[in-house]
Each structure stands twice: as structure tokens, then as C-alpha cells.
Nucleic acid binder design. Structure first.
Lengths: 154, 154
DNA sequence: AGTGAAATTTCCGCTCC
DNA sequence: GGAGCGGAAATTTCACT
């Protein structure tokens, strides 16, 4: 998928910085700011897409408005590493699970979940996650304050 | 910020599902699929923006193309909870830190970082994070396999 | 790689149903 | 709450440098 070495110069960085902040920023506005034509920006974007650096764009929704007020991380211990793929399959079916990582260290899986309140969290733990075959026990870490949420710097 | 109860009907869900997947999906394409006019979609989007449900859109870049191959979580123990805000300030200055949560449980802060390789990770730990005033010790969990990365279901 | 202009598509305020 | 119209603006392609 990656053949060409990609050279990201200062202009590319300006373009990407704008679009990483708001994917719907008009190309022509960026063009005027930089001082090159809209077509040139378009060409650069096509190149960056082809290189795989741009992997898409997403509309970001605020979970709080839907009543999802709690973010928590759950460390999941498996009784055998071989249970990973089947457990993962079940985790994918739980919509509140928004991230899942197979990790080195204490537990086997680190899961990030979003839920509405404490009862909801308890229900997820007791009736969903801990009932998955292979899950031995879990450790829960509730995020009381998320102050950093960004992408890697260019 | 939130005054009106927001009613998200099936049409809103279809619109949001498209845009959450690709924020640059043409509105008119969605309009044709649903069978209403483009202007109607615009009206709904404005309403959803005003409600705060839509908090923006972002271009997603693939860190691997930039050579960032490792994702890790770091549990940070503070020697006193009062050091949180000063430690957070320093964490914000480390570009490889992409998430930071103040958490209940074992440690005080859970940090997500992206880095290029093991040396880079070691450098971040020894020369950046563990030098922050108030940081007692850290636990590192490297993500070997991230299989879920999504937003909350509507 | 960048430009300028043409062709196409989208956006968005407006009026009407 | 949605449709249809129309002008303004943005996107996208292309020939040329």
C-alpha cells in the first residue's frame, strides 16, 4: 500500500492542520491563506490520500448529549490467552465498547467503554463483560476528567 | 447549552451514520438515498449542531504512515493528588500524549501515547513522563492489537 | 508541482405547501 | 417539517507552464 516515500512539507502541514481540526474547512479558504490555488491543494490532498496518511474523516458526536456521561477503562483478565479471539468477537457486539486493545502487562485486554451512569456501568460489567467466556476478572478505572484528546503531531 | 430535548429520529440516524463514517459525504447523496431534499438535511444538521450533539469533524491521519507504530497506555502514580494539575500541564506539552484521563483505581492518571519504536517509548518514559514533578512511578501497557475503534451507537 | 478557467456539484436562504 | 427554486460558493478536472 505504501510505495512512495512521502514528503510532507510546510504547506501540507498547514492543510492537514486545518482539516484535522475541521474536516469540512473549505479548500479555497485554506488556499487563500497559504497563497496558492485551490487546485494545488486538491492535488496535494489526493497525494496524501494515496500515500495512506489520510485514512478518512469522521463527524464527531458528543456522547454526553445522548446521556452517556461516564467513560471507563476496564482491564480484562483472561483465564487463557487462547480465548482472545472469541472474547473479542463478543466485545464487538457490545455497543458501549468503543476501544479494545490486546495489551502486554497485567491483563490481556484493555477496553474503553462509554455508559450513561453507574447502574449502566454495573450492568455492563456484570451482565455483559464478565459473562464472556474466558473472562476471569476485571478491573475498572473510571475517567473523572479527560483533558487531552488529540491526534499525533505532524 | 442544551435547552431543547433533542429527538433523533430514523432520518437523523441515517444522516449521522453516513457522516460519522465519512464527514465529507455529499449531503445530496444522502438526500437521494433517504428520499428527501438536500435542504431538509441541512435543516436537520443545523438542529443537531445547535443541540451540541455534533461537536465537529476531523480528518483522521494514520500514525503508522508517519512511523508511529506503537500505541501504549501508561498508568501514572502521583505521590500526591494535588500534583494533578501541574502534571497535566506538563503532559500537554508532550506531543506523543494523545489522551489523558484522571481515573479512579490504582493510579491517578491514565495516559495514551503513540510512539515510533521501543527506544522512543523508553525515552518518553524515562526522559519525559517520569521526570514530571509528582510522578512516583508508572506502569506501561503496550497495545499489540487494536481491533475496536468507534463511536457510541446512536 | 502550480496556475487559471471552465464544468460540475453543493450549499443555503428564500418562499410556498 | 419538508419541497422547490436560484444565486453564491466550493469542488474537481484539464490544458498549459
Amino acid at each position: 500500500m505504501k510505495e512512495k516515500e512521502l514528503h510532507i512539507d510546510g504547506i501540507d502541514k498547514v492543510i492537514l492542520k486545518h482539516l484535522m481540526n475541521d474536516a469540512r474547512t473549505p479548500i479555497l479558504g485554506i488556499a487563500r491563506e497559504i497563497g496558492i490555488s485551490g487546485a494545488a491543494i486538491h492535488q496535494r490532498l489526493r497525494k496524501l490520500e494515496a500515500s495512506g496518511l489520510i485514512s478518512g474523516s469522521k463527524l464527531i458526536v458528543n456522547p454526553k448529549v445522548l446521556g452517556y456521561n461516564i467513560v471507563a477503562f476496564i482491564g480484562v483478565y483472561l483465564d487463557a490467552a487462547s480465548k482472545y479471539s472469541s472474547a473479542l468477537k463478543r466485545l464487538k457486539e457490545i455497543p458501549e465498547v468503543v476501544e479494545s486493545h490486546y495489551t502486554t502487562g497485567n491483563w490481556a485486554i484493555l477496553v474503553k467503554i462509554v455508559c450513561k451512569n453507574n447502574e449502566h456501568l454495573l450492568k455492563l460489567l456484570n451482565q455483559d463483560i464478565q459473562l464472556i467466556k474466558g473472562v476471569a476478572r476485571t478491573e475498572t478505572f473510571i475517567s473523572l476528567d479527560q483533558q487531552i484528546n488529540r491526534q499525533i503531531k505532524l
